[in-house]
Simulated assay, not measured.
Amino acid sequence: MLMTAISGKTQPGDGVKTPRGASVAAAGMMTLSGALSILMGVSGIAQDSLLVTPSDYAYWFDLTSWGVIHLVVGVVLIVTGLGVLADKSWGRGAGAAVAAISLITQFMFVPHYPAWSIPMMTLDLLILFALTRFYVGTSG
């Protein structure tokens, strides 16, 4: 009778998918962007004096509304960032969609705090680039 030991460890090429390169970078940037958006959301909800409220702006919302928007987008960015990191099938597409939504909301938020919004828009563009570039999964 021939017995073989089965190792619990996986080896490269065993069909186990792990994110690499740009996916890991995108996941890290998404969790960072999400955490920063949550912090901005809390500032908006608390009516922080750091934020300016222009009166004649086309995309005008009160600061509490902006706070809730940033809070929700931040939480979704973190969840999708973890999905990308876990190499979930929905992660990359959902991550790109949420990064695009974050980019749009940051653009609309520019008059309130441009020193915050412009770097965050840059981060969102980097996330979009990392998630939408050609992806070659691991072959099994």
Rank of each mutant, 00 (worst) to 15 (best):
S49E: 14
I6M: 11
S65D: 11
T64I: 14
G83V: 00
A130F: 10
A86Y: 08
H112I: 13
V76Y: 08
S55T: 15
L82S: 08
W60L: 15
M3E: 14
T122F: 10
K17L: 05
I127W: 04
T80L: 11
D56T: 11
R92Y: 02
A5F: 11
S23K: 05
V84A: 04
L85N: 07
S89Q: 13
G34H: 06
V84L: 03
A99L: 08
G41K: 10
A99Q: 05
I104N: 03
A130R: 02
A130V: 01
M40P: 00
A100E: 03
F109V: 06
G74F: 04
D48H: 12
M121R: 01
A94K: 00
D62R: 06
A130W: 00
D87T: 03
G83W: 02
Y59M: 09
V76G: 04
L131A: 11
D62L: 10
T31G: 07
G34A: 12
I104P: 00
L131R: 04
A5N: 05
A130Q: 03
V68T: 10
V68L: 14
P114N: 06
F107S: 09
S43K: 14
M29S: 04
M29V: 01
G83I: 00
V68Y: 06
G21E: 08
L36H: 07
Y113A: 12
I38L: 14
T138N: 12
S89C: 08
P119I: 03
L51Y: 14
D124W: 01
V98M: 15
G95M: 05
T132L: 15
T4W: 05
L32V: 02
A115T: 14
P54G: 07
S7V: 02
G21H: 08
D87N: 14
G13Q: 06
Y57L: 06
F107N: 02
P19A: 14
L63K: 14
A86V: 02
G41Q: 11
T4P: 00
G21W: 03
K9M: 10
F129K: 04
L126E: 02
G81S: 08
V76F: 13
T105M: 12
G21S: 12
Y113H: 12
H70V: 05
A97C: 05
G67P: 12
F129Q: 05
S23T: 00
L77W: 01
A99W: 01
M108K: 07
M40V: 08
G137R: 12
L125M: 15
L126V: 03
G74S: 10
V52A: 13
S102R: 02
L39P: 02
M40L: 11
L126G: 12
M3P: 02
S102I: 00
A22I: 02
M120G: 05
L85P: 00
S23Q: 09
V24A: 05
W66K: 09
D56W: 02
A58T: 13
Q11F: 11
D48A: 14
L50P: 01
I6Y: 08
